[in-house]
Amino acid sequence: MNLVELTNEGLYCSAGDFYIDPWRPVERALITHGHADHARMGADQYFCTPTCEPILRHRLGQDIRLTAKRYGEKFQLGNAYVSFHPAGHVLGSAQVRIEVGGEVWVISGDYKRSPDPSCEPFEVVPCDVFISEATFALPVYSWPTSASLAREILEWWNSYPEGPSLLFGYAFGKTQRILAELVKLTDRTIYLHGACHELTKIYRASGVELSPTELVSEQTKDFDFSGQLILAPPSAHRSAWMKRFKAPQTAFASGWMQIRGNRRRRGYERGFVMSDHADWQDLISTIQDTGARRIFLTHGSTEVLQRYLNEELRLDARPLLTQFEGEAEA
């Protein structure tokens, strides 16, 4: 009997009668982090970490029933002992550890190992069964550090005083990570698209140190953005919103930028290889570090990683068909 099973509603633990990141309305939902494919509306009761709480309330409604549990704090649900552990993905992101009768399962949610000043660092949790994401599970993916990327971003920004520098990246996670890296290098103000605003406020309120920001929409009509850095979500690229910037240079921060063809196809001039997911080496070393006997894989290139774990590392790994989406290619 598996401790966690895949049902129509999502990943379900019958011993504790709760779901992890369910995609349909359920009674009890444990949420690994606030990204839309993991945190959905409609649960009667939510559990998450304290830093995840304001994000969840912002996204799902202030009046949801929510219980916050600190990292490492054990609590009982039915016959299961449950705890959250840092996943290093975004602020408040957690792995879920479930223990029933001496058997331990860990659901990773989304995770990364590279240092990120905007969130709690990943922690290895030993377990019997590990459910891992596999968004970037090909050996061509290996990330530079975000500190070195920040220097590249700053250089790119400084190289173009003639016009605005538009950097696209997720409004939640990527934007704040960039702000948290850049504040170490410069005290200049950075301008934000409206979609990045609320979450940036939440990060700041949680005590994450970020570059000073202002909203693009609050500048006067004749404000000159030349030489300024503007952060915006990918959906704003080539939208009407972009019209107010004269002759901008554009870039996209995403793990997919590792491949030249991706950047060219999307029409960005510059790509910064910055992802909030684990790269190939980190996926493999994390899976090994947990000491898990069995591994289930979600998100992305599960077949490749599965075959590699089976054939090269002799590990029992299989795919799990969830509805998580990984890093969208927008």
Binding site: P139, Y141, S142, R260, G261, D279
Partner: peptide, 21 residues
């Protein structure tokens, strides 16, 4: 798998070399 994903031999090899394989 990597060649099929990247679509270019020179680029795939360069990426693989940087990834520590």
């Amino acid at each position: 798998e990597c060649y099929a994903h990247v679509g270019d031999t020179g680029e795939t090899l360069a990426l693989l070399m940087s990834s520590g394989i």
